[in-house]
Design a protein around this nucleic acid. Structure first.
Lengths: 226, 226
DNA sequence: TAAATATTGTGATAAATGTCACATCAACAC
DNA sequence: GTGTTGATGTGACATTTATCACAATATTTA
């Protein structure tokens, strides 16, 4: 738990950029940075939601227990607040967050955060914008995932990770095959087979975890056709 | 378009309850009530999002075009704001809202609403709470729907409408079979068959649109088993 | 009222994908 | 090293569910 220097922090969220010096000072004394290793749970479904978690660096999966197994709801890349809805929406966390890389998290006292919302309209507005944008992209993904079948769903998250997370057509898969399956609501075996299929067709190249998108246009076509 | 009397309105949202008299006055002059008949579109995907839509009375479906067809994202019952995320998140609406009953909608000027957020912390906080609670329940439904198969998904929305919307085990289905299919991402035919199945098993009774849940426990069991 | 249109029910069939079983491979602990 | 554990690939098969086709009702419109 390092002593944070929020005022000097260069990883501030867009919302935190709008805080006054005094507010940043208040933040400093009500905030603790904790580092997690890849694979560690940042907060867990069913436990008390006591702090706001701000993801300062790294990549995280947000996931929830479903009737069958785990469901990955979204990947969240720094910088971002992690559990606003689960922290404000209920006393108990309704989902979990797990580090996919080593991450830096700042836990912010709920009271302090709430105070900013009450007293700093710009801050509140920025938080609202953030919640709204997230909901839009969630709805979009939800709709796509629920109407496409396996090839389209898989193509979609491969492209999504390429565009939204890594900004590159080559990247190291941050998820295991099982997790990919949890993400697109399919089975490990089916995902494995579909990846082989994409490889055979020359659309991707997968070496261990290293993924290379060879034919993005075709992948896009698969994605949009479903 | 009636001249609204927001100050006297007895259908205020929890957030609007927190507005001052002056703010309510500002609301009055920047707000227009419009009534829609069952089946009419309140706002449409792809059009400019220019106003906040507050659902004062009635029931609405929120839906989005998907790769295959329409996808119903949620049912929203009055009182509720309808398109906050699509209004704040982007200039264009990312989804549509259609009346399932006759409804009263108050369209509120975006600037006015934004002003309340900036200047009234309690209002902003209430809006944030609302967004958060919605996201939680969306995630829950999303997870359930994506992991269950047809019987479980159908059972879930039948129960959901019973508990959340109508608060009764007997109610008139607000959706056609096709819409039910759009909601649970299945086909019209499969939903029709599954409803017959439930009827044969004595779990429900469906007469025209009048649905009666006869064996709620069993329906719950189907719902939780998937 | 009749015609037109939308909604629903149901059988036959095909396609997609989950499940089971087992082999292989990699990482890590001891 | 060696054994243990977790992750992955793949064949065979069963199951679920979409699709197509068409009939039967409802509902709306002319």
């Amino acid at each position: 738990m390092a002593n944070p220097e929020c005022r000097l922090c260069s990883f501030k969220s867009p919302a935190a950029e709008l805080l006054s010096n005094d507010e940043l000072k208040a933040l400093e004394s009500n905030c603790a940075q904790i580092n997690f290793k890849k694979g560690e749970v940042i907060f867990r479904e069913g436990t008390l939601a006591t702090n706001i978690a701000y993801l300062k660096s790294g990549l995280v999966k947000v996931h929830m227990k479903g009737p069958v197994g785990d469901k990955i709801l979204r990947l969240t890349k720094a910088p971002a607040y992690l559990g606003l809805p689960t922290t404000f929406g209920d006393k108990l966390n309704h989902y979990s967050a797990t580090a996919l890389t080593d991450v830096h998290i700042c836990f912010i006292s709920l009271d302090t955060f709430r105070d900013f919302i009450f007293k700093n309209g710009s801050f509140a507005y920025e938080i609202i914008l953030d919640l709204c944008r997230n909901e839009l992209s969630d709805y979009q993904r939800y709709t796509n995932m629920s109407q496409k079948q396996l090839p389209g769903r898989l193509a979609e998250i491969l492209l999504c990770m390429s565009h939204e997370v890594f900004k590159s057509t080559t990247y190291e898969l941050p998820l295991t095959i099982s997790e990919l399956a949890d993400f697109i609501s399919s089975s490990r075996e089916s995902v494995s087979r579909q990846l082989s299929e994409f490889s055979k067709e020359g659309i991707i190249n997968l070496n261990k975890k290293e993924l290379q998108i060879l034919n993005e246009d075709f992948l896009r076509k698969i994605c949009s056709k479903g």
